[in-house]
Write a protein that binds this DNA or RNA. Structure first.
Lengths: 200, 200, 200, 200
DNA sequence: TATGAATGAGCGTTCATTCAT
DNA sequence: GATGAATGAACGCTCATTCAT
């Protein structure tokens, strides 16, 4: 009548957190369900009470990442103030967000490659990055309207800026010695002014 | 040098090319030795006459990619002319190189994540990207010396520029609709002048 | 006898009925304890308050079937009147009994194969069918004594008659379009007179 | 250039034979692929070179059984001579066929129950038995035309005769002490003349 | 040299059973 | 009593690798 009570949502999150740590350490392909269970301190079979399959855990990690990113984009778009300042803030927020959850960020290495032919993981990373670019493009368009960006900046420049951010993350993922925490400043500076400098 | 029909090197290359096509299509994790053999038009067991293991094929792909990149970096560093022009040319060359061998480029998705705990693949991607950044940093330093870049540009800006290039490649890998071929121009423009523009 | 809502026996029967429906639908091998519990409207763990194991439920179904059959055989043997008439009635009763509880009958498909090496189910189906044959043989012997069956009919003919009955049931189990309800008449006719007919 | 050579068909048959022995012993549900492989003297994985799944092995057994039966029915229908004599011969042939391959016959216990909801085995046992009944019905119709069976014998009587045959097999499967080899005579006698006897 | 049949370790997933509440 | 979360042994299947030919 009063059975064992558990917060299923919390449990699921606990497993997801454990999985993210394991994925970060070994990569998704080399991560065994048993590793995840051990990291979560539960039995192998128990994982399947909360996730239907190994892939579903990866998808959950993707969703966590994507919704965090969407929150940031939303914030940048709905903010007030000059567009360029908001772009600058977005750059800082994205890097801060990644530094705050580095294990989750490491899963990007597995996520970027997902969705190819055989893996049954239609994560729609493409759409997520599309939204990313669209948000940055919108900020650039506003900045141009405000006279703070040169006329004509558009999708291509948005791709470059998104690329610069994600490319910095990529380098840090490949080599943790890359000082991700100190990159916000130069990242914003280069994106806004280039290496020739504000007045070169 | 004394070929009986095809020499070992050519055969090995043929298998590597086939493997790269398969990896590009399905990702390394989902690529079976049998798929590679079939794509190469040989028998499964024959692959092992040229590669010691499945991982070794991926390592060979990495080496092809890394040496192509080194060749480009070498060219940029040893070239003559203004450093900024050589950086601009490097950016174009990298993108052209990727567009010329898109399947090999797609393997980056698997390579970036390699070298983690469990996968027995000490590829030293980190060092490769370190050389990449060092080359760009050297160009920036020269440009600064030439008065073409603002003083103080260094490692951090090099990381941002490498990030911008690779981040554009990343976006194209995630979504082939991203027009990688048209990105050289805006990439160079943003890296050199930022979105505010040459005279903003 | 002192029920707190429902007594244990009724609850057990309720679970058995549910199990029989599930077994009939999916077969024993594909039937999960959870399916049975859901069909019974109780929780999975509760099944174990009434049955020691999954196999024990199947054994209970066997016992229900066997005791129903024994009741029928008992009736035929203890009845009065000509033996052949009682055999005729037995045939009708068996078919009627099966038509009255078709789900239970479907479990025969799982029961017939039980008791083999690995399944830990010593159901003694063999003995049940032995009693079945013995009863029919007894009726035949009486019929022969009454001059209503040819002399010499014995175990073998009993096996054929039991076979004919169960073989008709088998065909209906395999294909429900077989009109089990209309088979009593021709079954009795063939067993008693053959296809050549009463006066062929 | 001259790789190991095997007769794939023979190998497949060897595995099927082994599987049939295992299925006969433990039943399909309790038979592990590893048991089959061990019985065949090969490794577990090798089974999958010849069968796509565990179920496919059972299906192959079904097909062997069904085609043997079809051959017998074909023979009876295409034979010459009085229809009743051919029915008599069919009965003997079926029993002889089963006695000649008792392990294969034991698989019937698993086959009869196949094709239910959850098991993904659309074996069409129903159609096989439909052909069986149709053949017997055709023989009976011919016999009636020849004046050797009473008019009006039809599908129902065919069902009874098929039932009698298969029901005898069933009893032998349940209890190997049932003398299947000695049942042809009484089976034919009862089917043709009933227990009252030729001239009762 | 090339082959492809054979291997067997390894893993994802299932589910009967247990037991704390 | 009743529950349902948790367990972990078990098994189907895969596939990198080997090796006899």
């Amino acid at each position: 009548m009063s059975p064992r009570r558990v917060d299923k949502t919390a449990r699921r999150q606990q497993i997801l957190d454990a999985a993210v740590r394991v994925f970060a350490r070994r990569g998704f392909a080399a991560s065994r369900i048993e590793d995840v269970a051990a990291e979560a301190g539960i039995a192998k079979g128990s994982v399947y009470m909360y996730f239907g399959s190994r892939e579903e855990i990866l998808r959950a990690a993707f969703e966590a990442l994507a919704s965090a990113m969407d929150r940031l984009l939303e914030g940048a778009l709905s903010g007030t103030g000059p567009a360029l300042a908001r772009l600058d803030a977005l750059i800082r927020d994205v890097l801060a967000s990644i530094a705050a959850a580095p294990d989750l960020a490491r899963v990007l290495l597995d996520l970027w490659g997902s969705g190819r032919d055989g893996d049954g993981l239609p994560l729609d990373m493409a759409e997520t990055y599309g939204r990313y670019r669209a948000a940055v493009a919108a900020l650039l368009a506003q900045a141009a309207a405000e006279g703070e960006a040169r006329p004509g900046v558009g999708e291509a420049e948005a791709t470059v800026i998104v690329g610069a951010i994600e490319g910095c993350v990529l380098q840090w993922l490949i080599d943790p010695r890359v000082p991700i925490g100190e990159l916000a400043e130069p990242l914003a500076a280069v994106c806004l002014h280039g290496v020739r400098g504000r007045d070169a």
